[in-house]
Structure formats: C-alpha cells, structure tokens
Design a protein around this nucleic acid. Structure first.
Length: 273
DNA sequence: TATCAGGCCCTAG
DNA sequence: CTAGGGCCTGAT
C-alpha cells in the first residue's frame, strides 16, 4: 500500500539518528525490524511511501511505531527565534521522528550501547537476535530474526552472550531480562510516570546509568521530554549554552530537540575532520 | 601500541 | 557524594 504525509518524515535521518539499531538499508528504502515484525518501506516521491504491508497491519503496528499521529512540524515551530543553534539544527535535521519502540527491545539495546559506536551496537544486537533464532520471513521472502523474548535472553548461556560481543555487559543484559521475567520491571507503569521519575526507577537496574535510562525513557517509553546527555550533547551545552539550557521553555519536547541538536552537531563535527 | 567510542560499577577519600 | 580506575570490543 501507499501512505502519504506532509509532516516531517525522513527515513535516512531516522535510520542514522542512533535511536534504532535494526533498520537495514535496501535498494530505494529500508527494511525496518521492530519487535517481532518486519516492514519494507520505500519513498516513491516527496512524502509518498510505499510499504509492503496491508492496511490492517499498517494500522495495527506501523502507524504507531512511526509515531504518525504526532506533528513534528508543529513541535519545531516552538523553538525560540533567538536560539540560532537549535533553529539551524532543526532545519537541518527535520525528518527525524521519535519512534515508539518496544520497551524491552529498547532496554536491552541501550544496555548494549554503552561504550560502543553504532556499527558495533548493531552488530551485537544482530548476533543476539540470530543466536536466539525464531527465523521469520519479511514480505520479500527474506529471512529476519525477531527480537528475542525476555525469557529467551534470561535463559541464554553466558557463552552465547559473550559470543554476541557483549563483553562486560553480559551480566547487565542477563539480569535485565531476568528482572523483567520476575515482574520487577513494569513498563506500563513506567510509561505513566514523568520522564524524571521513570529515569530514576530505571537507574535502579544493574548496568543502567543516567544516560542509558534517559534513552530508554525517550525511545522506549516515548517520554518526549527525556533528554539523554552523552558526550556530544555535553559538548553542545558547553559550546552553545554556557549560561544554561532552557529546559523549561522546551518542555515537554526536550527529547525531540535533543535529537535535532545531536544529529546536527555530529554532522558538523564529522565535516570538520 | 595507544586511544577512544553515544557509560557504568565499584572503591577510596 | 565525588572522583577516578577498570572494563569487553572494534576501529583508527
């Protein structure tokens, strides 16, 4: 089917934004893996997308995942006219959306992400899905692996997790899955909390610090106000917001602006080198 | 060979 | 409570 949108929606920008680790570039578009699902999507012309899914599947899964009920152009309009850096960042990076990813997948993926660059994260996540098996086929008949269930990960041998290149994160990943299985993590409850409180709760998990907890809040619980501070964002704050960052003014969309700023700054930084 | 990458744990002070 | 060393791994 085809769907159209006149809101910000750029596949490549989302794919490279660092919020998701299972988008694969294919000719003319992407194969998106999410939870146990797969979607083939291609942009046919400006704002017109072809997807290999029927209307029911689109409505049931992908519409929500791609956050198509949110209006990102409106969110961009709230940026302070004097905030030159953020205005430039949003103009350059518009098209990024905050996906509504599966919370458990997000939890595990961002525990894995620590001290890794994006290709390394993608590799580890892929290996984890492959070792867990459950082979499925996408609409083109190609094999993919669903994201493993908590039970599966909780019962994996440490040797397998090590083979996924998880290194010292092996016990973190395992314990997160076990905690979930034991009912110690309630994502529905966390979703209803403020991002600040959810982050505090998430930080109680072994191997989850402030940065990872913030990413889970933003990308897994869809708390658009969560503001992950990695080394790059810290540099942005030092360079452009010496007198303080206007979190209050940008509430409740701090996380969206963080994504623009992060992507833009990284682009500037890589251009320099 | 050393350093760093979208951090976190743990120990010392 | 804050600072700093150590840590799997892969890239440069």
């Amino acid at each position: 089917m085809i769907f159209s949108t006149d809101d910000d929606f750029n596949l490549e920008k989302i794919a490279t934004s660092g919020q998701c680790f299972r988008w694969e570039k294919i000719t003319g578009g992407y194969r998106i893996l999410h939870d146990k699902y797969a979607l083939i999507i291609k942009e046919k012309s400006e704002g017109r997308f072809e997807i290999l899914a029927d209307q029911d599947e689109f409505n049931a899964i992908w519409k929500e995942y791609l956050d198509l009920d949110e209006n990102y152009a409106e969110i961009r309009k709230r940026i302070d006219a004097n905030d030159k850096f953020l205005l430039a960042a949003a103009e350059s990076e518009k098209g990024i959306r905050i996906l509504r990813q599966d919370p458990f997948e997000t939890l595990i993926s961002f525990i894995i992400s620590q001290n890794k660059n994006i290709p390394a994260i993608e590799k580890s996540v892929f290996l984890l899905t492959r070792y867990c098996g459950g082979e499925k086929r996408d609409a083109l008949g190609e094999v993919y692996y669903p994201f493993p269930t908590p039970e599966k990960i909780a019962n994996l041998d440490d040797k397998i997790l090590t083979d996924c290149k998880l290194g010292y994160r092996v016990p973190y990943v395992k314990r997160a899955a076990q905690d979930y299985c034991e009912g110690k993590i309630n994502f529905d409850k966390l979703k209803k909390m403020s991002s600040d409180n959810a982050i505090k709760e998430l930080q109680k998990l072994y191997g989850v610090g402030l940065k990872v907890a913030s990413c889970i809040s933003l990308f897994g619980l869809h708390h658009l106000n969560a503001f992950p501070k990695d080394v790059w964002v810290k540099r942005i704050l030092e360079e452009f917001y010496k007198d303080g960052y206007p979190y209050e003014k940008y509430s409740p969309y701090n996380g969206v602006y963080q994504q623009y700023a992060f992507a833009y700054y990284r682009k500037l930084a890589t251009k320099m080198n």
